[in-house]
Every structure is written in C-alpha cells, then in structure tokens.
C-alpha cells in the first residue's frame, strides 16, 4: 500500500501566544508535530505493518520543519518530503496548501492519505477534504477506527460523540480524531535510523507552480489576544453556606440560572 501522511508542525500546547507587530511571535516557541497529525503517523505505521507498503510523510514548511519529519521517521515512517515555501510564499491559506499538495500528488499512486482532523493552531480542518476533492477520491473526517480489508476500508467515524460505522473503497483520504490510537514514543534506535532515511526537499517551482497559482483566497487582517480574564471571588465560610451563596450569585448577580 502507498500510504501518505500530511503533517504540519505547531506550537507546543504548553506555549503561551505572544504577539508583536501584528504577528505571532515564534522565535521562542517550541514546535511539535500537530497532535492530531501524530495519530495519522501512528495509524499509517500500524496499517503498513499489517498490510505491507510504504509510509511517506509530507509537510509544507520551512527548513526547521525537518525536525518534525525526522520525528515521524523515527516513529517508523519510511521516507519524508519537505515542500519548503520559505523563500517563495509570504502568506498562504488553505487554498494555497491544497494547491501545493494537489500538485505534489499529481503523479503519485495513492492508496491511503492520512491527516489530522484539525491543526491546533489554525484549526480550520479544511485541507484534508479540500485535497481529497481535488484528487477526486472519497474522504472521511474524524475517524476513530480503521480496518482495511482488501480494497475496502471499514471505518468508525466520530460525529460529536456518536459513532458512525461506514465502508468505503480505497483510494481514500481520512482525517484522524483523538481515540484512534496511542502514538508511540520514539526510541533511540528509531532516532538513529531516522537520520539515514530519505528526506526529499522540494520548492513550489519543482511542482511547476508559481506564486500566482497558489495565491490565498482569504487574508488575515488582524491578530489579537483575548482580554485577560480577572480572577473572581473565592467564597468563604461553611461549605453549605458557600454553596448557598454560589447559587444565589449565579441566579441574581451573574443571572445564568
């Protein structure tokens, strides 16, 4: 099976967001593989180990993105592709990303593409379905179980807490939801091996694209932080009295009951 994983790096979930000059400061940020993409990497490896084949991890980013690709290789992916847009693109959106990936996949034989259901930074969840549509293959978002039987995938899809069981033929794109699997930790031998695994670097020019082809359809005009929430009142006294006071405050002061 030819399995591809779409991966992006995101800020570590521990990181605070700092804005300077209208941009999010990323100099001091710790980057990780987007947590939902980690499920995708894990699932790709599990499926390859079961059915044979090859796992390629693809990212669009800058030269620092190699770090996350090496992590995915250390987890067990076979090879990686970095589409480096650092010198070519100032700003992009989900259209931009999809256009680049569409060009990348144009000459690829694909059985399965896995992605995170959402990235925890931009959180649009658009790129997976957009790409499937461009490649004219079916997609299933927010999957929590995947079983491949010959050419058919049997999938459990999370729909806001309920589970939908469905079947669909390969080739297929899926986006991964929490609960699908437990991503493995990288081992030292894995990390050593990853250093020697193939990592191809491309620029959009190599995909016969130029800046105009991928120009964003949307534009961010402002970024700001939410107003800082003030600490409120910690109630005092006997627990029973505190509870009484709380209900009274919720009803008469906050007016939410």
């Amino acid at each position: 099976m030819n399995i591809y994983v779409l991966l992006k790096k995101t800020f570590d979930t521990e990181d605070k967001i700092v804005i300077s000059d209208g941009q999010i400061e990323d100099d001091s940020a710790e980057f990780i593989i987007n947590p939902y993409d980690e499920y995708a990497v894990e699932e790709a490896i599990v499926q390859r180990d079961k059915h044979g084949g090859n796992v390629t991890v693809v990212t669009i980013g800058d030269e620092d993105s190699e770090k996350q690709l090496r992590t995915a290789l250390a987890m067990g992916a076979d090879d990686a592709v970095l589409i480096n847009t650092e010198d070519d693109l100032e700003e992009g959106d989900q259209f931009t990303t999809t256009k680049i990936l569409e060009a990348f996949f144009e000459d690829k034989e694909v059985d399965l593409i896995l992605a995170g259901n959402v990235a925890i930074d931009e959180a649009s969840g658009q790129v997976g379905p957009r790409l499937a549509e461009r490649l004219d293959i079916p997609f299933v978002t927010t999957i929590v179980d995947l079983e491949i039987d010959g050419k058919t995938a049997k999938i459990d899809k999370d729909i806001e807490g309920d589970v939908e069981k469905l079947e669909v033929d390969l080739p297929l794109l899926v986006t991964c939801q929490q609960g699908l699997n437990e991503p493995r930790y990288t081992s030292l031998p894995g990390i050593m091996k990853a250093k020697k695994k193939p990592l191809e670097e491309l620029e959009i020019d190599d995909l016969d694209l130029d800046e105009d082809d991928v120009e964003a359809k949307t534009e961010t005009v402002d970024i700001f932080l939410p107003p800082e929430k003030q600490a409120g009142r910690v109630l005092e006294g006997d627990v029973a009295d505190q509870v009484k006071e709380l209900v009274d405050l919720l009803k008469n002061e906050a007016k939410v009951l």
């Binding site: 959106d93 989900q94 259209f95 959180a123 649009s124 969840g125 379905p129 978002t141 729909i159 806001e160």
Partner: peptide, 23 residues
C-alpha cells in the same frame, strides 16, 4: 461549524476553489 459543516464546506471549497472562513 458542526460535524456536518466542518465536513462538507471544505469539500465544496475544494471543488470550486473558493476561500472559506471556518469557525
């Protein structure tokens, strides 16, 4: 921006190559 909205709008945006603002 529900399970259905998140699923179908990027499909349409992908097919018609539209900008889409989610959420």
């Amino acid at each position: 921006h529900t399970s259905i909205g998140k699923d179908v709008t990027p499909k349409i945006a992908g097919r018609l190559e539209l900008g889409l603002i989610s959420d």
